[in-house]
Computed example of a mutant assay.
Amino acid sequence: MMRRVGKPPVPGKTYRSRPGVYAILPLKGRFLLTAQLRPEVDVQLPGGGVDLGESPLQTLHREVMEEIGWTIARPRRLGAFRRFAYMPEYDMWAEKICQVYVAHPVHQVAPPIEPDHATVVMSGEEAISVLGNDGDRFFLDRFLAMRP
């Protein structure tokens, strides 16, 4: 059974499955994150929804490039969680199935392409204190606990 984080589903709402992939990106003892600036600041692991016809790894590479402008290598899946949320940009209630990977950031090639996103670099402790969702915090905390 997959771990559920956040609020339970709202009774009477119909949720659409929305698979996504997200990356923990360690860089010189810190972590690359994205900050979605509107409608309010929300710090997140870079990543997003899997488009039709895409594999999770294709999505991971695309989303990291769009949200923080970096190429990545050696992605390794850490696990998954699900959460129930309203997605105003799509006007839909979604059951988000979130796969989390750790990957090696290789090179920053561009600023974020995604509108209203900024690249943020923080320590693990700082990131855990500001990440906007419980699943991101859980996996980053678990990743930090696994390190020597």
Rank of each mutant, 00 (worst) to 15 (best):
P75L: 01
V120D: 12
P26G: 00
Y22N: 08
W70D: 01
P9A: 00
H117K: 03
D141E: 15
N133L: 12
L45G: 04
E63I: 06
P88A: 07
M92R: 15
C98A: 09
G29D: 12
G12T: 03
D141C: 11
E114M: 13
K7A: 14
A23W: 07
P112M: 11
T34I: 09
R147W: 14
A118V: 08
A73D: 03
Q108V: 04
P8N: 07
T71V: 07
P112I: 06
L33N: 06
V121F: 02
L140H: 05
E66Y: 02
R38F: 13
D116K: 10
I68R: 03
R147K: 13
V106P: 01
S123W: 02
G47S: 05
Q99E: 03
A23H: 00
P9W: 01
D116W: 07
P26Q: 05
P8K: 01
H104S: 15
Y101T: 05
L32W: 01
I68E: 01
K13H: 14
R77Q: 10
A23C: 02
G20V: 07
Y22E: 15
A23M: 12
R142E: 11
R137Q: 14
P46T: 07
L37P: 03
L60A: 04
A80V: 03
A145M: 14
P19E: 08
G135P: 04
Q36C: 13
Y101S: 09
M146K: 06
K28F: 09
H104G: 04
V50K: 06
K13E: 15
G132K: 13
I97A: 13
K7F: 15
L25R: 04
E95G: 14
R137W: 09
P11Y: 12
E125L: 04
G47C: 10
A73G: 07
F31M: 12
G79L: 06
R16F: 15
I24Y: 03
A35M: 13
L78I: 10
G47K: 08
R77F: 08
Y22H: 08
W93L: 14
L37Q: 05
T119A: 00
L33P: 00
L57Y: 03
A23P: 07
L25P: 01
S129D: 11
V106G: 09
E114S: 14
V64F: 02
M146Y: 09
G132S: 08
A103E: 11
F84S: 02
R62H: 01
E89C: 09
E54W: 12
V50I: 11
L25T: 02
K13W: 15
D51T: 09
L32A: 05
I97K: 11
G132R: 13
M122D: 07
G132T: 13
G132I: 14
I128H: 15
D116Y: 08
E114Y: 12
R76Y: 11
L78T: 05
M65P: 02
G48V: 00
A127C: 14
K96D: 14
L131G: 06
L78P: 02
G49T: 12
